[in-house]
Amino acid sequence: MIDYFKKNVDFLSRITILLIIVAGMSVINPPAFLNWNNLSTVMFQQAPFTILMSFGMTMAIITKGIDKSMASIVVLASMLSGSYFKNGNLAMGFLIALAVGAAAGLLNGTLITRVGVAPFIATYGTDFIALGLAYVVCAGRYIYDFPANFRVITNGCFIPSVPNIALVTMIIFILLWFLTRKTIFGRSMYLAGFNVDATILSGIDAKKVVTVVYTINGLLAALVGVLYMARLNAADPNISGNLCLDSIAASLIGGTSFGGGKGSVSNAVIGALIIVFIRNGMNIMNISTNWQQAVVGFVIIFSVFYEMAIGRLTKKRMG
């Protein structure tokens, strides 16, 4: 039992922060916050987008990189596939969205591993390209009012009272958890972030691993684009909004280290939930939206200190 705590102190401490926030909100405004309707709305309808985005961001950060371009890939994928979904051609829509995502991710991966561009700069460039193209494609005409058989992808309930978007997020979580924790690819990913030279010397194709990570990110972003379109009932070039910064924040609050090689997709879930609950709680308390930004910043800094303190504590005990 104590062993379990030691091993998972990082994950457990994040859950503690989440619980503290939820408890705080519940004390301040119990009837509005602490009811199943609100909690399920936040967890099953609002959080999945931030969670899916922070999966990608976390994986990029684990390889000692970052993916600044995901939010713009979300927009580009939805702008290009929107008219197909609108006309009820779902298969074609998915195909195009995922192709856009994979292509953008592959571009990122190739720039980083084969050309040797720093991850921030490569993805920053892709970010501009994707958003620019999205604006060109959209040209001010939003696509609005999608058919019901498309909106079901996000809003429908395959399992009663669990919206499909939550189900999709859970499936992706399980897939990514398995991929990062139980496969050679996953171990190579952590190794590549920890020490890329040693990884290459030990015979692992680190370049390929990193390229695959960014391609997965592109696919995740494309999926988010399609799901968000179904939620918002519109292909809107402004949906990127907070997605990029929120996913970086979620990864950081989840304890993913910019030093590389450390972090996990399960921590990303907790990080994302913390952010979404903060936003929800502050809306309910009728606090100005501008404060949310500041509060998320405070939580990021607090969680870094928290991690350091916990780290020191466990080291002492073990020593």
């Binding site: 709305t41 609002q46 918002l232 936003r279 309910i284 009728n286």
Partner: peptide, 14 residues
């Protein structure tokens, strides 16, 4: 639009 959807969804809880 996306921001308003989240804000109103939260306000509807209250």
């Amino acid at each position: 639009r996306a921001e308003a959807m989240n804000v109103v969804q939260n306000l509807l809880q209250q």
